[in-house]
Design a protein around this nucleic acid. Structure first.
Lengths: 139, 139
DNA sequence: AGAATATCTGTAGAGTTGTTCACACGTTAA
DNA sequence: TTAACGTGTGAACAACTCTACAGATATTCT
């Protein structure tokens, strides 16, 4: 998921060695608007976290509010260890946050952007009609 | 707090063997709203396509309009073969479409949802400022 | 026709990811 | 205290992904 590909050549010069161009102006224009390499990498990391069905189910579950690990496991069909591993990945970039109470750990979505990404993605995938997640997205 | 106590699975077949539950009602509620497995899988595939920096650069470039393979290569820093491989992956789920003119192939974004996903993601990484994502830092 | 061009595809190998298992850690109950 | 519990972690391994290279295909030029 996170495999850093070769960063674009230093800005300014479009034409490197033996690279063919058809529309040099367009290339230059697009390159000038291209975000920084680090931003692109971060974006890819976030999307990569959403690229596993198990993690997606976890995050969709969390759309409805906080949940503990064992309930997430029951909800998603993953093992508890699997849920824990997944939540660790999601905790790193602060996609989810944890609230601890005794030996329980309650997880919730940390950031509304992920909520929107999930909602948009579900719409894209053809999950049309029916309320589903809309209501939960308000919080 | 709700002890697990595990009563004989209240009616709705929340889960089967030996899974501990803390809040069975919540689990049942969330499970009833969980999208179909196929939709979740498709969603993960789409996000997976956005999880590679090279492909993200290609798609960001296409935000400005259609481009041919060699200009995409020059723009993104990928090899032309690499761009072609990436575009093949994106063509499958109709994320991009191709218009052929002679021996040229002009690609463009096929679907406005991907455009929105990219925009949302970009404003997200832009707004989080230099709060760089730290993958391993969570722990 | 042959050569050059633009794109596409197959393949191998290096690297990465997800899952499972076994156990460790901190908390609560007995 | 000991035992049970909920969760976290590390290691191992299969499965997958990306990249580079070679070559294929299709189109255009001379």
């Amino acid at each position: 998921m996170t495999r850093s590909s070769q960063p674009p050549a230093p800005a300014g010069q479009v034409s490197e060695c033996s690279l063919r161009l058809v529309d040099a102006d367009k290339v230059e224009q697009v390159r000038s608007r291209m975000p920084e390499e680090a931003d692109v990498a971060d974006l890819a990391v976030v999307f990569g976290l959403l690229s596993d069905p198990g993690r997606v189910r976890i995050l969709i579950a969390l759309l409805e509010g906080e949940m503990c690990v064992c309930d997430l496991a029951a909800t998603t069909g993953l093992s508890e260890s699997g849920v824990s591993h997944a939540l660790r990945l999601l905790r790193g970039p602060r996609v989810v946050t944890v609230r601890r109470a005794g030996r329980m750990a309650y997880y919730s979505l940390a950031d509304s952007h992920v909520r929107m990404l999930l909602d948009l993605g579900l719409t894209h995938v053809g999950h049309t009609g029916r309320d589903r997640l809309q209501m939960a997205a308000g919080r």
